[in-house]
């Protein structure tokens, strides 16, 4: 097991390094303008631009910049560890920026994940057990709606109904739970639900299909032949096997959202990591983009690792493979 984890960790590091390198190369091979120009303000002369390029390190070849970035990442820079540099736009260090924005995104994901996991799996189980009844059809109708409705539309409709009309939501923006826990929940519950909708729908369908497939397995017939009750058959023998793929999906979905909850973030004006990434990309702020990409890649790689280890505990067949 220790060897297994070590091997996985090694590959995780390789993957993250590759992601950084690719981001670097893409950024330099596809420049839509000179970052120095943006930094310099109005009507700069060539001397000023050269000075700025030098200060930002842009006058060095990209591989030197890459090497420096990697070195700073591991050894830290004057803004702390891990060293992510200073933004080109110049308001703050990237590390500070990320530490400031990350809680918004992470709390958004955490709340939504809890909602979608419980509602999705519950709906899926009910649907599978009550297959071909009105309940099943209603649940799968909801799933179809959840999967097809675009998040921005759901978000805007939610805001209109629950904020403008009913006043149940405190609307857009972000309030830190450290400042006001009721304000935090008042602002967050709607984005949680909206973000969870798509995933809940997906998980409901997955749970239903997996459970139905599992219930057709021979070992389920064995469980019935033993004289177990239908409840034991479904919840012990059926669920155990059908929830394993869902664990995998759950881990990866959470990780992907670290850099990918942009739409929800912007509809509700939460200004989290997605907002940082978009902002960084449009203003050619390489350090900011690299910081967010690195965090997102790390999240995916680490979640992958966690899922793999978890999987080995859930499914004994993986352990010895």
């Amino acid at each position: 097991m220790a060897f297994y984890i070590a091997r996985r960790l090694f590959w995780t590091a390789i993957v993250v390094a590759a992601v950084i390198a690719i981001t670097f190369v893409v950024f330099y091979l596809l420049p839509a303008g000179d970052p120095a120009l943006r930094f310099a303000g109005k009507n700069p002369n060539a001397q000023q631009l050269d000075l700025i390029r030098h200060r930002l390190g842009l006058d060095q070849p990209w591989y030197i910049q890459f090497f420096k970035f990697i070195k700073n990442f591991f050894t830290g820079d004057q803004y702390g560890w891990p060293g992510l540099g200073y933004t080109f736009a110049g308001q703050s260090s990237v590390l500070h920026l990320i530490l400031d924005r990350a809680p918004r995104t992470l709390l958004l994901i955490a709340g939504a994940a809890v909602i979608w996991l419980f509602s999705g799996v519950t709906i899926g189980i009910i649907s599978a057990v009550r297959r071909r009844t009105i309940i099943d059809r209603a649940a799968m109708g909801f799933a179809l709606f959840g999967i097809s409705a675009p998040v921005f539309w759901l978000g805007l409709m939610g805001l209109y109904i629950f904020w403008r009309q009913l006043g149940w939501s405190s609307g857009t923006g972000y309030v830190s739970p450290a400042d006001s826990i009721t304000g935090f929940i008042g602002h967050m519950w709607l984005p949680w639900v909206v973000l969870a909708m798509l995933y809940a729908a997906f998980y409901a369908r997955m749970t239903r299909n997996n459970l139905l497939e599992t219930l057709g397995e021979d070992y389920i017939r064995t469980a019935r032949a033993k004289g177990l009750t239908e409840r034991q058959v479904i919840f012990k023998h059926g669920l155990r096997a059908s929830l394993t793929p869902i664990v995998t999906m759950f881990g990866l979905d959470i990780a992907l959202l670290v850099g990918g909850a942009v739409i929800t973030e912007s509809v509700f004006n939460l200004q989290g990591l997605g907002y940082l990434a978009i902002n960084g990309a449009t203003t050619q702020d390489l350090p900011t983009v690299l910081g967010v990409v690195l965090l997102a890649a790390l999240a995916v790689a680490l979640m992958n690792l966690v899922v793999d280890i978890l999987y080995a505990f859930i499914d004994p067949r993986v352990r010895y493979a």
Binding site: E217, D218, Y219, R221, T222, A223, R224, A225, K226, G227, L228, T229, H237, R240, A241, T244, I314, D315, P316, R317
Partner: peptide, 26 residues
């Protein structure tokens, strides 16, 4: 439910494919 009490207690069954008939995770 009465039939369930007979199954596995008074009448037991062994199936064809022992690879598929045991739950792989227990």
């Amino acid at each position: 439910d009465e039939l369930r009490k007979v199954r596995g207690k008074e009448i037991a069954m062994v199936f064809q494919d022992p690879f598929a008939c045991l739950h792989p995770m227990y």
